[in-house]
Amino acid sequence: MQLAKPFKIPESVLVVIHTPDLQVLLIERADHPGYWQSVTGSKDALDEPPAETARREVWEETGFDIAAVGGELRDWQLANVYEIYPHWRHRYAPGVTRNTEHVFGLQLPEALTPTLAPREHLSWLWLPWHEAADRCFSPSNAEAVLQLPRFSPVPSS
């Protein structure tokens, strides 16, 4: 007998992975080809801190161990509350229609090659931040990418 999958917690993270020169990593969803996004994911437990959710999701979706690759995870202290797309509401408890998304930035020392989870993502690419924002299917993801220069200014040479 297979146990029922628990409902998703309507609290998640969005992690904008970028380089010092503001190249942004986007990954293409396997369940919706053509939908490009940053790393996202829901909490596994109500008491899981958002930063831990961010680290876990980065590992699961890209294979990047943040400390091992020399990354710096920053909590941007932003939260988006948005309507869950109707075609994804079946993953949540009945009546849940809104999600709170905590936004993080992850600066890597350079554009690294991710190891994608094949059931979750089909492809990846690095783009300049303004082009990445245009490619994101989610308005909150696009807005977060547009905020990148504010939260991670390009170092002066």
Rank of each mutant, 00 (worst) to 15 (best):
residue 39 V to L: 06
residue 81 V to Y: 05
residue 70 G to W: 14
residue 56 R to F: 00
residue 52 E to K: 05
residue 72 E to W: 10
residue 40 T to W: 14
residue 52 E to R: 04
residue 73 L to A: 07
residue 88 W to H: 12
residue 55 R to Q: 02
residue 38 S to T: 13
residue 94 P to N: 12
residue 57 E to K: 13
residue 34 G to D: 05
residue 47 D to H: 03
residue 43 K to G: 01
residue 53 T to P: 02
residue 34 G to S: 06
residue 38 S to Q: 08
residue 78 L to W: 12
residue 42 S to T: 14
residue 69 V to G: 08
residue 68 A to H: 10
residue 59 W to S: 15
residue 88 W to V: 12
residue 97 T to H: 08
residue 98 R to I: 00
residue 91 R to K: 11
residue 93 A to R: 15
residue 84 I to R: 00
residue 97 T to D: 12
residue 77 Q to C: 07
residue 39 V to H: 08
residue 44 D to S: 05
residue 48 E to N: 01
residue 31 D to P: 03
residue 89 R to Y: 09
residue 64 F to K: 04
residue 55 R to E: 15
residue 30 A to H: 02
residue 54 A to K: 03
residue 43 K to M: 00
residue 72 E to C: 15
residue 61 E to N: 08
residue 79 A to N: 00
residue 34 G to N: 06
residue 39 V to I: 10
residue 83 E to P: 05
residue 69 V to F: 12
residue 70 G to E: 07
residue 45 A to G: 01
residue 87 H to L: 14
residue 81 V to A: 11
residue 84 I to T: 06
residue 78 L to P: 06
residue 46 L to E: 10
residue 32 H to W: 09
residue 97 T to R: 15
residue 68 A to C: 05
residue 96 V to T: 14
residue 47 D to E: 11
residue 90 H to F: 14
residue 73 L to P: 04
residue 89 R to E: 05
residue 38 S to G: 12
residue 45 A to L: 04
residue 70 G to N: 14
residue 35 Y to E: 12
residue 72 E to H: 14
residue 52 E to T: 07
residue 65 D to V: 11
residue 42 S to R: 13
residue 97 T to P: 11
residue 30 A to C: 02
residue 51 A to L: 14
residue 58 V to G: 06
residue 89 R to W: 13
residue 51 A to W: 07
residue 47 D to P: 00
residue 92 Y to T: 10
residue 39 V to W: 06
residue 88 W to T: 15
residue 87 H to E: 14
residue 93 A to Y: 08
residue 62 T to R: 06
residue 52 E to I: 00
residue 52 E to G: 00
residue 40 T to V: 07
residue 36 W to Q: 02
residue 84 I to D: 03
residue 59 W to G: 10
residue 74 R to V: 04
residue 41 G to Q: 11
residue 75 D to F: 12
residue 65 D to A: 01
residue 32 H to T: 15
residue 60 E to K: 10
residue 77 Q to G: 13
residue 72 E to I: 06
residue 57 E to F: 09
residue 93 A to N: 13
residue 96 V to K: 03
residue 92 Y to I: 00
residue 71 G to P: 08
residue 65 D to L: 11
residue 39 V to T: 04
residue 32 H to D: 14
residue 94 P to F: 01
